[in-house]
Design a protein around this nucleic acid. Structure first.
Lengths: 363, 363
DNA sequence: CTGAAAGCGCTTACAG
DNA sequence: CTGAAAGCGCTTACAG
């Protein structure tokens, strides 16, 4: 056969139309399964389409329809477990609803976030899902999105002052429950290792701790509460210091699993048994919490679920409003975290019962 | 003002043309910075475009151009660290080359992989990057891609029999180096915990181990080589058994970090010191390897780099062929893994020197 | 149930 | 340097 790179021309509905002997518009209708076409003709057209290896051209259809069945998501980092899980959830919802997903990463840069918004508008996405970068202080670029009649859903790192649908974690409530769990296990002198206090997220987690302490009527020395303890080694040092006090903490709630790990090391350094003498619970349910000895209790943010729910705000509340009876006017949803009780915080109860660690579906 | 939802009509080049008083085609050229338009006119047009808040419509341009400046990637799981890192690398390369990225997840299902291919063809992507699902045995769907004049690059989980550009890890070489590292630390009775032997990836890792053993002229009892040891607890059990032998292993190379962790536990169970009495090195450089005590040595696959390189096969070798002098005919690239030496495999050398753990850039 | 016609917004030969 | 015209492949009122 004669070699040579003949550019295969793309098969279009016109080709099918010619082959079947009908009009292109009828082919389009048949392929879209419109009720106005006879079943016979539909089968005929579908068969011919398969035979000719026809592929629908989304660009043409999008242009004509003015809607792209595509969703854009912007996250600070794709390869951070929390966001990777969220994206997996979003992807799942998109797949179920026959939508495409375009992913952008701001890399925590405001400039790149603005560029990503620009890109998604140009791509004609129907909806943008965004978690703001650390640098983001203004919302003009979000306004751009809505100005172009594109739906907007913020999640996790959100600007509450901007009127859009919003999904967040229940940081305060989650912390409250984590501390209550420690209290239920008989711990009384519970220390807190927090994050940078100027970020709302960490402020909320601290507030949850304080609320639980207050509700239980416990007395906590001021130096049991330490901010900026997100990493392992600083937490290890700080915990060692506290554990050497005459009146030392008997438990630690840390807003980071890495800090929890540091505390675990400190306890082991000081010859204290976990969970018998010292209880520990962290935050985020990092993979490593399942492989330490003892395993570390933590707060799971159910990130994949959050991703699914974020996308579903668009699919269920915006695309098909009324289906669930809720108004589609600036919804504010809270994803409930769950306490993962592992060995580091579950004491053998006096009567011999031991609560089992909750099974976790990481999926 | 009269309330009411007037649908804002999208601003097009025609609107700009009318506002400036020139032809739409000239606006297009100005916006695309073609040399055939005067600088004066370009500035005028750009200013007006900004003023009117014009956004380029990619769907229209793609339809007209027949190219979408969009790349599609299909991975088994988005939220597995290895693939999340790869995607981050791909995204980076796409951003640098002004391309969009559409992400699909096969979820290890052949059926969903075929659907993803279908989707990407319909989206008119210029190139598909794919890592095959576990179920994938045939390549008709890959043929579909190339049939539609779409570029194809396979990475990591590839089908070597299908003629396309390919990027893989140097599994064999990496294992060889890992075992050599153990040997260099004075370990002599090195056990191997492998994976399912029917998968090429694990076969290669075993071969690398065998090659290094043979080259060093070491004698290894057959029962030191155990397949299907990817998880922590099975590895722990198997390692304990081996460590209780009269002539026990003095080191373990495992093809999974979870197995390495199981071995570490087993050593501790048996009262053996790591790394003094038992050396351990795993594979994948999971996050938790940095937080165990002792920290675990591992093989880093440099996944983010692999993602970047995969995308760059398209950008550098296909889009701009010849730029690097390489032919663009079915390239086969190998990404070199690196050995991350941590505490679990680095012995204090007799003369008092201690090799420092290599710094790792996880980025 | 089927078809003819218009048009989505852009790019690109071609002409001037 | 600028413009008029055609057309990418589809969908959608509208007519029959």
């Amino acid at each position: 056969m004669p070699g040579g790179k003949e550019k295969k021309k793309r098969i279009t509905i016109r080709d099918i139309a010619n082959a079947v002997g009908i009009a292109p518009s009828s082919v389009s209708k048949a392929l879209n399964d419109l009720p106005t076409i006879s079943e016979n003709m539909k089968t005929l057209v579908r068969a011919k389409a398969r035979e000719l290896n026809y592929k629908h051209n989304s660009n043409a259809a999008n242009l004509r329809r003015g809607t792209s069945r595509t969703i854009g998501v912007i996250v600070p980092k794709i390869n951070v477990a929390f966001f990777a899980d969220i994206i997996a959830g979003i992807e799942q919802a998109c797949f179920e609803n026959d939508h495409r997903l375009i992913i952008c990463q701001s890399d925590e840069s405001f400039e790149r976030e603005v560029q990503a918004v620009e890109t998604l508008i140009q791509q004609n996405v129907d909806c943008v899902l965004i978690s703001l970068s650390q640098e983001t202080k203004t919302t003009d670029h979000l306004k751009e999105i809505t100005n172009h009649n594109i739906q907007l859903v913020q999640f996790d790192r959100v600007d509450h002052t901007f009127g859009s649908h919003i999904l967040v974690n229940d940081n305060l409530e989650a912390s409250f429950k984590a501390v209550q769990h420690l209290i239920s296990q008989g711990y009384k002198r519970i220390a807190f290792f927090g994050g940078p206090d100027h970020l709302p997220l960490y402020k909320e987690r601290k507030q949850g701790y304080l609320d639980a302490i207050r509700k239980a009527g416990l007395t906590i020395p001021y130096n049991f509460i330490v901010d900026n303890m997100l990493k392992k080694e600083p937490a290890r040092t700080a915990a060692t210091e506290l554990l050497r006090l005459k009146v030392a903490p008997d438990a630690f709630f840390t807003v980071s699993d890495y800090a929890a790990l540091g505390v675990l090391k400190a306890a082991q350094d000081c010859g204290k048994k976990v969970p018998e003498e010292i209880g520990i619970i962290g935050f985020s349910n990092e993979a490593f919490t399942e492989v330490t000895s003892p395993t570390l209790s933590s707060v799971s943010q159910q990130s994949k679920k959050m991703g699914r729910e974020t996308a579903n705000v668009y699919f269920n509340h915006v695309l098909n409003p009324g289906a669930d009876g809720k108004s589609s006017h600036s919804l504010k949803l809270v994803i409930e975290s769950s306490i993962i009780e592992r060995e580091s915080s579950v004491r053998k109860i006096k009567n011999g019962l031991k609560k089992k660690a909750t099974a976790v579906n990481r999926e």
